[in-house]
Simulated scan of single mutants.
Amino acid sequence: MSLIRKMTLFVASFSALLLSGCGDDIKYNMREGVTEISREVYELHMIAIWVCVVIGIITFGVMFYSMFAHRKSKNPNPAKFSHSTAVEIVWTAIPFIILIALAVPAVGLLIKMEDASDSDLTIMVKGYQWKWEYKYIDGDDNLANDVRFFSNLDQASRDMSRNAGSGFSGVKIEDDNYLLEVDNPLVIPVDKKVRFLVTSDDVIHSFWVPDFSVKKDAIPGFINEVWTKVDEPGTYRGVCAELCGQDHGFMPIVVKVLPQNEYDAWYAGKVAEAEAGPDLNERTMSQLMAEGEAAYNKYCSSCHMPNGEGNGPFPSLVGTEMITGEGSLTKHIDTVINGVPGTAMQAFGSQLTEAEIAAIITYERNAWGNDTGDKVQPQEIHDIKNGGGE
């Protein structure tokens, strides 16, 4: 096959692939999204794509014509000239004009994307390894009735990941939302300008929801600002777009956009939960173990493994001094609540409820053959967190 024919086939194949993403079934193209900003981004993207297509057709057309019309067999004696000033001016001026023509609307759109003023709602978004925390803030940038919660990967996706060996064992996972579902989605109202204040508690994360054209880095010690105004109720999904650690792919983002009346009802429920306070009811050992196993699998098993034997820098919890040593209960509780500075062990005191912490500690001290008999109640954790314990 001749070189010209090979190059022609390549251009034809590439063009077919490009055009296949420009039709109604947008399989290879950018999402148009559900916000005014996302649609403007999509339109600018399509303009740039078609400019590139035209440039490519002209460039390759001239190149192929030159290769064919001026081939050695037809013109054995090449022309002798060094350059053309007019041609050089043209091929410098045209790209400059194209860049300016694209830059003007792009800069205008970027300025618009950065303008989060006059927002109807502000939400603090904080990234953790590997979860998101959402805090609803009122107009004075204070916590709105202390409505805050964490959003973790749902247990079904965790179970599928373990059963499928993270997708590398040949087991086919047919769930369309595999690794894209959470236990507590972010909820916002439709047709309201929502400002996100994005930061991180540990390493750099990135808050990305493609349907909103929202992508902002979450950096420890910094607060970045981005906003959205969604036109259509629905459920929209995103991910952390920064390589933030071994479970980077296990911290998805799910946003539920509700009509105003449904949002108000949801928000009122969250306010009522916050005002009700923590559940400090005493539990039996069987209740603590059942709740502890569920909470351990959600929050702890990715590091310490489902069998408690640890993994790399994450220590084992089976028969260790931390778990079974004399007087170790106090240190165990302190470690879970306050973490271990300088290590990957996070402080879970502000991330989990008193009931979850009590259940996890009880479970870890009585699972996998540890059998210490220790039982921790939510009230004990509450007293310690509020300075009333030892």
Results as ranks from 00 to 15, higher is better:
197 L>H: 03
380 E>V: 11
65 Y>C: 06
35 T>G: 04
309 E>L: 13
16 A>G: 09
227 W>T: 05
299 Y>I: 08
92 T>E: 05
52 C>E: 15
134 Y>I: 04
54 V>T: 14
109 L>Y: 13
13 S>E: 12
104 V>G: 04
205 H>F: 13
358 A>G: 01
189 P>T: 12
195 R>I: 09
27 K>M: 10
136 Y>H: 07
129 Q>E: 15
217 D>Q: 13
182 V>N: 00
388 G>M: 13
21 G>C: 07
272 A>Q: 15
304 H>M: 04
135 K>P: 00
185 P>N: 03
173 I>N: 00
295 A>R: 00
82 S>M: 09
329 L>V: 14
79 A>T: 11
228 T>K: 04
200 S>T: 11
42 Y>H: 12
87 V>M: 11
114 E>P: 01
59 T>A: 14
289 M>W: 06
80 K>Y: 14
78 P>H: 01
157 S>G: 00
293 E>K: 11
140 D>S: 13
172 K>H: 04
336 V>C: 07
147 V>H: 00
32 E>G: 10
6 K>L: 15
196 F>K: 07
179 L>V: 04
277 G>A: 11
380 E>S: 05
203 V>W: 12
267 Y>M: 05
98 I>R: 02
271 V>H: 02
346 Q>F: 12
46 M>S: 07
79 A>N: 09
242 E>Q: 13
338 N>T: 07
291 E>T: 06
157 S>D: 06
279 D>T: 13
53 V>L: 14
342 G>C: 10
163 N>C: 00
185 P>Y: 07
331 K>P: 00
358 A>I: 05
256 K>Q: 13
356 E>W: 01
6 K>Y: 15
326 E>H: 13
225 E>W: 02
159 D>H: 03
203 V>P: 00
203 V>A: 09
58 I>S: 04
65 Y>G: 05
75 N>K: 07
262 E>D: 15
118 D>F: 10
98 I>M: 07
296 Y>W: 09
323 I>W: 02
171 V>I: 11
73 S>E: 14
228 T>N: 10
286 S>F: 10
76 P>V: 03
328 S>G: 15
256 K>F: 03
125 V>M: 02
225 E>A: 01
81 F>D: 12
45 H>N: 15
72 K>M: 05
90 V>S: 03
266 W>T: 01
317 L>M: 14
253 I>M: 11
73 S>C: 06
35 T>Y: 01
302 S>M: 08
318 V>P: 01
388 G>P: 01
370 N>S: 12
33 G>N: 04
282 E>T: 11
42 Y>V: 03
75 N>D: 11
118 D>I: 08
91 W>V: 07
151 S>D: 01
270 K>L: 06
304 H>A: 09
70 H>A: 06
156 A>K: 08
52 C>S: 15
131 K>N: 12
90 V>H: 03
94 I>Y: 02
129 Q>V: 14
58 I>R: 00
